[in-house]
Structures are given as C-alpha cells and as structure tokens.
Amino acid sequence: MGGFKTFLRKEFREIFKTWRIWVLPGIVLFFAISGPVLTAFTPELLKTVTTEQPGVIIQIPDPTFLEAYAEWIGNLSQIVLFAAIIIFGGMVSGEKKSGTAMLVLTKPITRTAFVLAKFVSNLVLLVCTVAVGTAVTWGVTLAMFGEAPAEKLLVSTGLFLILAILFLGVMTLFSSLVDSQAGSAGLGILILVVLSLLGLWGPALEYSPAGIMSASSSYLMGKDPSLLWPSVTSVVVTLLALAGGAFVFSRREL
C-alpha cells in the first residue's frame, strides 16, 4: 500500500482547498436548517392559503419533532443521496481525465492504495458532513419544537449512513470502470432505482440492501423494520464494490 498515507493526506487537503468542501456539506447543512423550520411553519403557510381562498378549510394537526426528523431523513434519502451519487461519479475517473493519475501512478503508489484513499477520504467527508448536519438539525428541531429526543434521530440517520456508504462503494466501482462522471453517475442512479423497486418485494426488503432504503423512515414511524440482514448485506455489497473498484482500476490502462 505504498504511498497511501501521502495520497490520503492530499485528498483531505483537496477537500478543504477546492469546491468539495462547499457542495455536499452545503447541501446537507441547508436541509439540516431548513427542514425543521419548514416543518414548523407549514401550518402557518397553509393557513395563509386558506384565508386567501374563502370556503377552503384545511385542518392540520400541530407538527411535532417527528415530522421534522422525517423531513430530514426524506431530504437525506432523496436529494442528498442523489447529489452524492453525482459528486462521487468522478472520484476516480476525474483524476484519469485530468492527467493527474498518470503523474501519481508512475510513482510508488499502488492502484489499490489510490482507489482506497479515494474511498476513505470521501467516507470521512460523508460521515462528518452527515454528523454535523444531524447535530444542526437536532439543535434547530429543539429550538423550534421544544423537544428533540436524540435516539430516534441518531438511529434513523445511522441507517441512512449505511445506505450512503453502500452507494459510495458502488460509485467507487463505477468511477473506476467508466471514464465519464455522467456515465458512472447514471449507473449509480440506475442502482438507486433498482433498489427502490426491489423494496416492493418482501424477501428483498428483509434480506437485501433494499431494506435499508426504507428502514430510516419506517423506524421513525415507530415500526420495527428488519435491520440485521439488510445491514449485513449492505456492508458486504459495499466491501465487494470497493474491492471490485480496486481490481478493475488495477487492470485498466491509463
């Protein structure tokens, strides 16, 4: 794994010195703040609509912290995951395209170390971003609703993270395989659609990563979703995809 530490250090510096520090964290923080606020003010907004249209009566129960949490998980599972797939689509191929991989990989660093450093740096970015976002959304929820039990938020966000890390692994594979960022992002979105469809089939929901996709919101709604097998298979798929990415990239010509 020659050169791994040096290259990983470069990856972290790149995150802080380029657009990468703004995009994913920016999106997550935006939803971390706006989610609870929008949830709290939605009844007020709807009341405005009803007063402007006489005869229309909409009765909405007072929102709770659970709805703020559901908004947060909904945004993470849809918009943030979608953005992450697009961003991670160029994580390996971007260096090939710009010619930097050619300069780096003619020095004593293995291609496996190169791919692994890409995965680890993006994993740290993803986990830290979601952790900070979770803390912010918890604080804003507490401020807006007066109560914000941490456990439900932590467990449901943790389940989302398993899904997000699974997609990070899958994008490592696709980005090692396909030269175009758009191409690998397209494949990632295809996998997202396939997992969503698999979620309609009971056995897949119980045993495959498809179960993780709906687990966060199910847990928030007080259901007791099957977590063990979807979590185990998600971790296995993540590791297989990562190993596949390293394998494919090691055999590619640059």
């Binding site: 470069k10 790149e14 380029t18 260096e95 710009s98 930097t100 300069l103 003619t106 020095k107 660093i109």
Partner: peptide
C-alpha cells in the same frame, strides 16, 4: 508525460513535496 496533469490548487512547492512523499 506529454501533457502533465497537475492539481491546479497546489503550488509548485506543494506538488514537489507531495511527489517526494509518494517516494
């Protein structure tokens, strides 16, 4: 290489230090 690709956010010194670190 014929068209060397550098990290545009680095200075020359930073790139040389990075290259040295890989060795």
């Amino acid at each position: 290489p014929d068209v060397p690709g550098f990290y545009p956010w680095m200075t020359a010194e930073e790139f040389l230090r990075f290259s040295g670190g890989l060795f």
